[in-house]
Simulated scan of single mutants.
Amino acid sequence: MDQNFSFTIFNSAEALPATWDTIAEQNAFLSRSYLSVLERSAPDNMECHFIGLFKDGTLCGIALAQYINLSRVNTFVEEKRRFSLKDYIFKQFSSHILVIGNNTLTGQNAYLLTDAVPETTALSLLRRSLQQLAREYRKKCVYMNVLAIKDFNREELPDFKAAGFNGYYQFCTQPNMIFSIKENWGNIEDYLADLNTKYRTQYNRARKKSEGIEKKKLSLEEIIEQQDRIHELYLTVAGNASFNTFHLPKDHFGSFKRELKDDFLFYGYFLNGKLIGFNTLIKNGSDMDTYFLGYDDAVQKEKMLYLNMLYDMVSYAIKKGFKHVIFARSAMEIKSSVGAKAEEVYGIIKHTNPLLNAFMAKLFPYFDPKVEWKERSPFR
């Protein structure tokens, strides 16, 4: 590697170089403000690190790394009430994970580069930074089991091989669901006009079911006031997931609203004055990223609340002129029923135990929850 390239690991967002945001302006999820609030309100089992890539002392690339301690969270939800062999094995051999990327999001939010650094050079630096972070944790008697980079596109795979990521297993899990907004849509009526009869009927039925529910954009003060109920609703949804690597702290959404202000949107859904659901959105340039949500299970089924939330997100994004809604992973079938398309995202992973790493191709599919779903085509 060219000797004038180097990397620096920053363990606090406050220590980031002044020029960081000149690169991060392409992606809000790598900005100083976002990384600062993520660091302060991260799940208890997650620690954030920030990597600067330099050429001749000038910043030319930025990246996010996270240490995740899975021994502190119930990973496999399906067997949470009794002894789980899968969970036991997983925690014995894969509890300590170091990943370049953002475990709370879906999509390529791991790194950004300028033209001053070739992709393979940058990835080689990131590989070395992973190893350096692992050594620093070892000094604290924390021994990494797994090293990984998550959520990049198929086209980038050859660059990782060229950058020396030898022995890493390539994987592809649940896709990122992306809703693209057509240029001729100015409002929700234009969207509805493009739906076929079956899915227009689905929309009308969902809207009818939601009668009596009041939707309200919550201020910071209102989020704090409802904090306990919000956390309860969030945990209901998190508890339904087949695989968990973290749980958000109770003050997470208030912290995000305080820091990101109008770029973070929190919508509460009320029935008879009681909060029965919420969803959150983060503005990211021309994209609108859906964030976490929560709901009362009983009300959600009766009122088709989740589907109505999806329609609300679509309506808002169309009205405000966004190009995409990033719906992320999970619930792929219902998201495709409103028009989202699946985009495959890839990752690479390596176990630090050479024997276990040799069997990664067999082990990873065992632990990776398989989700069967049928893609829907709602448009005419």
Rank of each mutant, 00 (worst) to 15 (best):
S210D: 00
K217Y: 13
E222Q: 15
E232K: 14
I223R: 10
N240R: 08
N240I: 01
A238E: 06
L220V: 01
G212H: 05
K215Y: 08
E221V: 01
E232A: 11
I223P: 11
E222S: 05
L235F: 03
E214G: 00
E211K: 12
D228A: 15
L233E: 02
G239K: 11
Q226P: 02
Y234T: 00
L233H: 06
I224S: 11
R229G: 01
G239P: 11
E225P: 00
T236Y: 04
H231N: 15
V237A: 11
Y234I: 00
V237S: 08
L218G: 04
I223C: 10
E232C: 13
I224M: 11
I213R: 03
L233M: 06
K217P: 01
I223H: 12
T236A: 15
L218M: 15
K215C: 05
L218Q: 06
H231W: 12
H231P: 00
E221G: 01
I230E: 07
E214T: 11
L220D: 01
E222V: 02
R229E: 11
Q227P: 01
D228Y: 07
E222W: 07
G212I: 04
S219Y: 10
S219D: 08
E222F: 05
G239E: 03
L233R: 08
I213D: 02
R229W: 05
A238D: 00
E221F: 03
I230H: 08
E222R: 08
E232D: 13
G239M: 07
R229P: 03
K216Q: 14
Q226H: 13
Q226G: 00
Y234V: 00
E221H: 05
I224A: 12
D228H: 13
D228V: 04
E222C: 03
Q226F: 13
S210C: 03
L235H: 07
T236E: 14
N240Q: 10
L218F: 14
E211S: 08
S219R: 07
H231M: 09
Q226A: 13
D228W: 02
Y234N: 06
I230Q: 08
